[in-house]
């Protein structure tokens, strides 16, 4: 096999996860040597035509145009990896599903009649088969490199789907919920961030979305015990993964 090609695609998103690729400063030269970056418009306007060995897809599907474009991306990609909460769960823009999209449009745009948008913000996996999903808002740089190095070595990437707590404890951090009474979504949230927020004495915001089979009911009882009222609990879950089925309230 020659040098594999890499394409980066953007749907409805803020570009932050794509920038994580550029943020791999120490590894960027080695990465550029190992893959041919064929399409990455954040970094270069030169686009090499597909098909591509690996596609990194950022963003959710929120417009009729994106509904068809994601099909074309899938057709051109051997391996498709979604990057970030938007692409894997619908992102913060999925909050539209709790509201009236026409009202949002009229408030945000001067001429809403020119805007074509869907009432939903859906993950890429709702439209095409996805090979790997990287969670987070934004994704974790080390997990991105893990997926790419695993692909290059022909092995399965290490992407654990346990709670943030397992990583928090392995780092030797003191539990912020137990020791400080700080509300924390770590016990129901998918690991992969390195327990970033608890390491800074903050509760987990759940930006990696639900872990495999979370017990939300049990955690909600504990969030109440930490002093959160129902509205605050709804807000805690209605962030970057608001429409992930387990977090939806």
């Amino acid at each position: 096999m020659g040098t594999p090609s890499l394409a980066v695609w953007k749907f409805t998103s803020c570009d932050g996860c794509q920038l994580t690729l550029l943020d791999c400063e120490d590894e960027l030269l080695a990465l550029a040597g190992a893959v041919r970056i064929a399409r990455f418009t954040e970094a270069s306007s030169t686009v090499i035509q597909g098909p591509y060995d690996v596609s990194l897809v950022e963003g959710s599907v929120t417009t009729p145009e994106e509904l068809t474009r994601i099909q074309r991306v899938r057709e051109q990609s051997k391996i498709l990896v979604t990057i970030g909460a938007c692409a894997t769960a619908g992102g913060i823009q999925a909050l539209r599903e709790f509201s009236d999209i026409a009202e949002y449009q009229s408030l945000v745009y001067a001429s809403p009649q020119h805007v074509e948008t869907l009432a939903t913000s859906t993950p890429i996996s709702a439209h095409v088969p996805v090979d790997y999903e990287l969670r987070g808002c934004p994704i974790d740089r080390r997990q991105l490199l893990e997926v790419l190095t695993a692909f290059l070595a022909g092995r399965k990437p290490n992407l654990p789907d346990t709670s943030v707590c397992t990583e928090c404890k392995r780092r030797g951090l003191t539990c912020v919920m137990v020791a400080d009474g700080i509300p924390c979504l770590g016990p129901v949230t998918h690991t992969g961030c390195g327990a970033l927020c608890p390491a800074h004495n903050r509760g987990c915001f759940g930006c990696f979305g639900p872990m495999n089979q979370p017990n939300i009911t049990a955690l909600v009882d504990q969030l109440r015990a930490c002093g959160l009222d129902e509205r605050a609990i709804d807000r805690a879950f209605r962030t970057f993964n608001a429409t992930a089925p387990e977090f939806r309230r």
């Binding site: 709670s163 397992t166 404890k169 129901v188 979370p214 017990n215 049990a218 955690l219």
Partner: peptide, 13 residues
């Protein structure tokens, strides 16, 4: 099981 978060904290500590 209704109460357990299956977060793994008990085993880690």
């Amino acid at each position: 099981a209704q109460r357990c978060l299956t977060c793994g904290n008990c085993t880690m500590v």
